[in-house]
């Protein structure tokens, strides 16, 4: 335990308070840390060219953009596209669905991979560990079309899930699970857990290998059981990875993609299955309303960045760490 707190202390100690800066000390830093600048500035330029510069495309959101015209010939319409977006009932519907599904996915995508990684870490048999880990990440490579097909048949009237429920006498007659609007979010989250847990656990496994083994030895000497070790060493050891991923994913709450929802969904549950990305596709690119599509993606970006800063701020306040 003492070693642990020592490790934590060394972490916080790492960031010495910066004193007030001025020009001279910056220049001095620049020279002193020239390697650090050499190692980062080329990439800053890179990002500027390939990521920041194309943002001029956002001007499309304020135009009635026509692919055929040059920039100067475009018709400017102010905030019309945004006004339309915020007045569309369907937008709020897809926003609700998106947030619900990504919120559930965020929590499940945090808990299950960590749990899986931790359990795997407790396995002493190396071959079992490697095989389990390899197999669990395979579904990641199977497309959603296939997974959706399997899920649909598992949950169909004569599927195995209904068979089990009948056998347990929990239900009297088979339920058409895929036709239940209110269960759709759960079905998506469950399928996602099934498909991605093994893949997402890899990052935590890597983080766990970074934990100093001496900490476990010391804890064992102190008489700590497996649960104590998990709780006091493993989890704190990967805390910073967990937090970084969590904060970054909060920023992605609106960007769920639409593939799994489209493939798992059907016309009966469409009020619960349509998500923002599909809406942007259907009402933007697909019908050549690029401006509207851009307005939606601008909205998504701005909200994402706000979410990111909020999450990071809270993270900083409570955990005294920050990704930025």
């Amino acid at each position: 335990m003492e070693t642990l707190t020592a490790a934590q202390a060394s972490q916080t100690k790492k960031r010495p308070k910066k004193t007030k800066t001025n020009k001279r000390s910056f220049l001095k830093d620049l020279i002193q840390q020239k390697y650090l600048y050499l190692m980062s500035i080329p990439f800053v330029i890179w990002l500027f060219v390939f990521n920041y510069y194309p943002i001029w495309g956002w001007t499309m959101a304020f135009q009635n953009y026509k692919p055929a015209r040059t920039f100067g010939e475009q018709e400017w319409v102010g905030f019309d596209n945004f006004v339309r977006l915020f007045h569309d009932d369907q937008f709020y519907l897809v926003l609700r669905n998106t947030l619900a599904m990504s919120g559930m996915g965020l929590v499940a995508g945090l808990i299950f991979p960590i749990l899986f990684a931790v359990l795997l870490n407790e396995v002493k048999s190396m071959p079992f560990k490697r095989i389990t880990q390899t197999i669990s990440y395979l579904p990641h490579f199977v497309s959603w079309v296939v997974v959706a097909g399997i899920v649909t048949s598992l949950l169909s009237l004569d599927g195995i899930v209904n068979d089990i429920l009948m056998w347990l006498h929990l239900i009297d007659e088979p339920i058409q699970i895929m036709a239940k609007e209110h269960w759709f979010w759960g079905v998506v989250t469950g399928s996602d857990i099934w498909k991605e847990t093994g893949w997402n656990a890899i990052i935590y496994l890597a983080a766990i290998t970074g934990i100093d083994k001496e900490l476990y030895e010391a804890a064992r000497v102190d008489g700590a059981g497996r649960f104590r070790q998990i709780w006091n060493i493993t989890l704190p050891g990967i805390r910073s990875t967990i937090m970084v991923l969590f904060v970054m994913n909060i920023g992605h709450l609106l960007a769920t993609g639409y593939e799994k929802q489209m493939l798992l969904g059907n016309d009966l549950v469409s009020d619960y299955s349509q998500v923002l990305d599909l809406y942007a596709l259907d009402y933007g690119i697909k019908i050549a309303h690029f401006s509207y599509g851009t307005a939606i993606s601008m909205f998504t970006s701005v909200v994402s960045i706000l979410l990111l800063f909020t999450a990071n701020g809270l993270f900083k306040k409570f955990a005294k760490e920050s990704i930025m």
Binding site: D29, Q33, L47, I55, M60, P67, M248, S297, S301, I305
Partner: peptide
């Protein structure tokens, strides 16, 4: 020194894109 600028500059790139055409 510039780590805050750099990390913010980096982090933002995860959440926006200029779009296919630009």
């Amino acid at each position: 020194r510039s780590s805050k600028f750099l990390s913010t500059f980096l982090a933002l790139t995860m959440y926006f894109s200029g779009g296919m055409v630009p």
